[in-house]
Simulated assay, not measured.
Amino acid sequence: MQFNFDSTEPLYLQVAEQIEEAIFLNSFEEGAQVPSTTEISKQFHINPATVLKGMNILVSAGFLEKRRGLGMFVASGANGKIREKRQQEFYKDYILNLVSEAQKLSLPETAIIEMIKRGYEQNGLD
C-alpha cells in the first residue's frame, strides 16, 4: 500500500481504494483476513480512526466483513461485486463520454466500434 499524504483525496478514501484494489487483484482472497487497523496505522503512520473509516466504507459496500474479536475479512463474492462496480463506473466515466464526444464529431457507431477493435489489436488483446 502507498498513500499520498499531499493529495487532496482524504486518507480514509485512499485506504478504502488500496484495500479494494488488493481484493480485486486477489492479493486478499475471499475469506482471507486483511491487516488490522492497528497494523496499517502503525506501518503507514496513519491515525487508526482514519484507517477504520476507510475499512467501514468497504464493509458498507459488502467487500469486507467484521468478525467480532477476530478482525476484518474479505467477504464472500467481494471480487465479483468489485468487478461489477468497476464495470458500472467504466460505463459512466468512459463510455458515456466516448459516445458524447463521438456524437459531437458525427462519428457513427460503426466507426467507434472499429476504433475500439483497432485499439484491442494494437494492444494485443484480440
Rank of each mutant, 00 (worst) to 15 (best):
residue 3 F to D: 00
residue 3 F to N: 01
residue 3 F to L: 03
residue 4 N to A: 00
residue 6 D to N: 10
residue 7 S to F: 06
residue 8 T to G: 06
residue 8 T to V: 15
residue 9 E to C: 08
residue 10 P to R: 13
residue 11 L to H: 02
residue 12 Y to S: 07
residue 13 L to I: 05
residue 13 L to W: 07
residue 17 E to C: 08
residue 18 Q to N: 04
residue 18 Q to R: 05
residue 19 I to S: 01
residue 21 E to I: 01
residue 21 E to C: 00
residue 22 A to D: 05
residue 22 A to G: 00
residue 22 A to M: 00
residue 23 I to N: 00
residue 25 L to T: 10
residue 26 N to Q: 13
residue 29 E to R: 10
residue 29 E to N: 12
residue 30 E to L: 09
residue 31 G to L: 13
residue 32 A to F: 08
residue 33 Q to P: 07
residue 35 P to R: 09
residue 36 S to G: 00
residue 38 T to C: 03
residue 38 T to V: 05
residue 38 T to W: 07
residue 39 E to N: 02
residue 39 E to L: 06
residue 39 E to T: 08
residue 40 I to S: 01
residue 40 I to A: 02
residue 41 S to T: 04
residue 42 K to G: 05
residue 42 K to L: 13
residue 43 Q to M: 13
residue 47 N to R: 12
residue 49 A to T: 07
residue 49 A to W: 07
residue 52 L to R: 04
residue 56 N to F: 06
residue 56 N to H: 07
residue 58 L to Q: 05
residue 58 L to G: 03
residue 59 V to S: 02
residue 60 S to F: 13
residue 60 S to C: 12
residue 61 A to S: 15
residue 63 F to T: 02
residue 64 L to S: 03
residue 65 E to D: 10
residue 65 E to I: 15
residue 66 K to E: 10
residue 70 L to G: 07
residue 71 G to P: 01
residue 71 G to C: 03
residue 73 F to C: 04
residue 74 V to G: 02
residue 74 V to R: 01
residue 76 S to K: 13
residue 76 S to P: 14
residue 77 G to V: 10
residue 80 G to Q: 09
residue 83 R to P: 00
residue 83 R to G: 06
residue 83 R to V: 15
residue 86 R to F: 01
residue 88 Q to H: 14
residue 88 Q to K: 15
residue 89 E to R: 13
residue 91 Y to E: 10
residue 91 Y to W: 14
residue 92 K to N: 13
residue 92 K to T: 10
residue 92 K to W: 08
residue 95 I to S: 07
residue 97 N to I: 14
residue 97 N to W: 11
residue 100 S to V: 02
residue 102 A to H: 03
residue 103 Q to A: 11
residue 104 K to Q: 11
residue 105 L to G: 07
residue 106 S to G: 07
residue 106 S to R: 09
residue 109 E to L: 14
residue 110 T to F: 10
residue 110 T to W: 04
residue 111 A to H: 14
residue 113 I to C: 08
residue 118 R to S: 12
residue 118 R to H: 11
residue 119 G to N: 06
residue 119 G to P: 00
residue 123 N to D: 13
residue 124 G to K: 08
residue 125 L to Q: 08
